[in-house]
């Protein structure tokens, strides 16, 4: 029954599966790494972004309770990590960036061993080890000594050991580091599947924006140990000022005059008109969750219709994560 008890008691009150960090500061040998970080995360796919040395790995170690913490600074699954880190870790998986394999053991032995250390009965751990190794694509290689694995296989093995005890959250530190493009895509697909279809919370720490963009719903941006931003990956869509790409033919002068009357700024980019529209001035665009891009599209469409301007293209120009990230980090 112990395995059952361990799994059921993962969250302190049975309902809180989130992560809360309150005014977290941390220093290694008097060198400050994290400075007053605050955030709350619900179980979802989170990207932890920041330049090298910004404190991403240290933040993950704080979430795991691997470093000394003060009371109520970090709460994971409802547990205060200063006091109850060991209990909370039954529901957490960790994939370190470097090392993290145990030589002289086969892949399946390493994963089962980690399962047992997480409180699983030996038989369950071995059964799960086979399952997760198949899931990550190491089914055929599971009996080989893991120190003979290629870099891509080692990354998969590390992901498997993080999953063996079926955690609520997995913390992935640079999971695509050192992988070729194919390996990278394949690992990201696994992570996406876990976060979007299997109900696991994922924190993906990386400096590769494309990785976060393809997997995560929310981002945390760290710079020099400070939390610069916490927002949805597509938060750009909720900003009031949005840029629309417009292409068409007809009475362009009248169309531009109509846009100007709407309060839009227009610039030309090759054949495209880039229309910057402040949605806060468009009636019906503002809602509780932000601004409705559709209202902006409708407004431009109406101007085109009134001025006999036939549209070939009309869409909101996506704000790339890279633009957002650099804007935040350089702010």
């Amino acid at each position: 029954m112990e395995g059952l008890v361990i799994k059921v008691n993962r969250s302190e009150n049975g309902t809180d599966f989130g992560i809360t960090v309150s005014n977290l500061s941390f220093a290694y040998a008097k060198a400050p790494v994290l400075k007053g970080v605050d955030f709350h995360l619900e179980k979802s796919a989170i990207g932890l972004l920041g330049p090298n040395g910004s404190g991403k790995t240290t933040l993950l170690r704080c979430l795991l309770g691997q470093v000394p913490l003060k009371k109520d600074q970090v709460s994971v699954l409802g547990w205060d990590m200063a006091k109850k880190a060991r209990i909370a870790r039954t529901g957490l998986g960790w994939m370190p960036e470097t090392g993290g394999i145990i030589p002289d053991m086969s892949g399946v032995a390493v994963v089962a061993y980690m399962g047992e250390l997480s409180g699983m009965p030996a038989r369950d751990a071995m059964q799960r080890a086979h399952e997760v190794l198949h899931y990550v694509g190491l089914g055929d290689e599971r009996y080989r000594p893991c120190d003979k694995y290629s870099q891509g296989m080692k990354q998969r093995l590390k992901l498997a050991q993080a999953l063996v005890h079926d955690p609520e959250w997995i913390f992935l530190d640079e999971p695509t580091s050192g992988l070729d493009p194919r390996g990278r895509v394949s690992i990201l697909e696994l992570i996406r599947d876990l976060a979007h279809h299997k109900g696991l919370g994922v924190i993906l720490s990386t400096h590769l924006l494309a990785d976060v963009e393809s997997v995560c719903q929310e981002i945390l941006v760290l710079r020099d140990g400070e939390l610069m931003a916490q927002q949805q990956v597509d938060a750009g869509a909720r900003e009031p000022r949005q840029v629309f790409e417009v292409e068409g033919f007809g009475n362009e002068e009248a169309f531009l005059a109509g846009l100007s009357a709407l309060g839009a700024e227009v610039t030309q980019e090759h054949r495209l008109l880039l229309v910057t529209l402040d949605l806060s001035t468009v009636s019906g665009a503002e809602s509780d969750s932000g601004f409705d891009t559709g209202a902006g599209v409708k407004a431009i469409l109406a101007v085109a219709l009134d001025n006999e301007y036939a549209l070939r293209r009309l869409r909101r120009r996506p704000v790339t994560l890279a633009e957002e990230f650099y804007r935040m980090v350089e702010a």
Partner: peptide, 27 residues
């Protein structure tokens, strides 16, 4: 069969789990 499964959630069998120190010693 195991090779046909995707990721499934662990359903504890109710077996006995050993303390971590014993697992480390055994290995």
């Amino acid at each position: 069969p195991v090779y046909d499964r995707g990721y499934t959630h662990w359903e504890p069998s109710g077996g006995r789990a050993y303390p971590a120190w014993l697992v480390i010693a055994k290995r």
